[in-house]
């Protein structure tokens, strides 16, 4: 009986990704038939006339990049500190706090961002308005920080004591122990933590929607982080309900979903490659 149940559970969950992919591909076929590659390279999105995904792809990439730039150094630093430096009690408190924060829903961050962060950013940089790529990226960075921190801390903490003791015995300084003996061992776990954070950032809808300005336009110049933009998730969030079910508009939104799916898969795959190489290299 139990093997059967396990088998069914396995089949159901492993086919889920396939079902979603089939839904995304079949739903986006009409738009690729009508537009071909120009859907991916197009810069204009005007419902009923033209659909181009480039601004949204760009927005997603840049916002995720900023989020990583915030969450990785802060998260990793805190993780090393929590695992290697502070005492057991403090670690326990820190960890529970972080895990609590990791569960805070996006809308909470979104509202905080809308009311506080946009005005801070505006006043800090002397902008005309604070709804921009940078605000969205920073907000996402703070949002994924607890995930990145607590999971990489798990990875670092799981490195056996023996490594530390032997490195010490070889005459390593405290910081050398961490840098050369502990961290290399923890890399696969750290990569996994980063990945989980990043995919949450890429898919975050509501928090981004409220602070990014929702403008389907490539910033000019491209590196202008103070320009409003749009991510794939925020675009689908804005127009999904209106396009529901029928027409090229709907197909275009499903195709955006497919592009996001592919972006996440590519990221996961390449991070796994990196992680493995890192580990093999060190051991």
């Amino acid at each position: 009986m139990i093997p059967w149940l396990l088998g069914i559970a396995f089949l159901l969950s492993s086919s889920l990704a396939g079902i979603i992919l089939i839904f995304l591909i079949s739903g986006s076929l009409p738009i690729f038939e009508a537009y071909g590659w120009s859907f991916v390279t197009g810069r204009e999105w005007f419902v009923g006339e033209t659909y181009g995904a480039l601004p949204m792809m760009y927005g997603t990439t840049v916002v995720t990049g900023i989020a990583l730039g915030v969450a990785l150094p802060l998260g990793l630093g805190t993780a090393v500190m929590t695992s290697e430096v502070v005492g057991r009690q403090t670690r326990h408190v820190l960890k529970s706090m972080m895990e609590l924060m990791a569960g805070v829903p996006g809308i909470v961050y979104g509202l905080l961002g809308l009311v506080l962060v946009t005005t801070w950013i505006r006043d800090l940089f002397g902008l005309i308005d604070g709804n921009c790529v940078l605000t969205a990226g920073l907000l996402l960075g703070v949002m994924i920080l607890p995930t990145v921190m607590t999971l990489s801390e798990d990875a670092i903490h799981a490195v056996p004591r023996l490594y530390r003791q032997q490195a010490r015995a070889l005459g390593f300084q405290a910081h050398e122990v961490i840098l050369h003996a502990v961290l290399p061992q923890a890399i696969p776990g750290i990569v996994g933590a980063m990945l989980l954070g990043l995919t949450r950032a890429m898919g975050e809808t509501i928090a981004v929607m409220l602070v990014i300005g929702s403008l389907d336009r490539l910033p000019a110049p491209l590196y202008n982080l103070f320009a409003p933009a749009q991510t794939i998730a925020s675009k689908i969030g804005r127009e999904g309900a209106e396009a529901i079910g029928v027409g090229l508009h709907w197909n275009a939104l499903v195709a955006l979903g497919l592009i996001l799916f592919v972006m996440v898969m590519t990221l996961t795959w390449s991070a796994e490659q990196l992680g493995w190489k890192g580990r093999l290299h060190r051991i």
Binding site: I128, D129, N131, S214, L215, R238
Partner: peptide
């Protein structure tokens, strides 16, 4: 079509918030 636009909002509440928080 409105190429001069800086921000796009949804509901009246969202529009109200964005305009009220801005000073321009």
């Amino acid at each position: 079509k409105t190429p001069g636009v800086d921000l796009v909002t949804g509901s009246n509440n969202e529009q109200l918030t964005k305009v009220a928080l801005s000073n321009a």
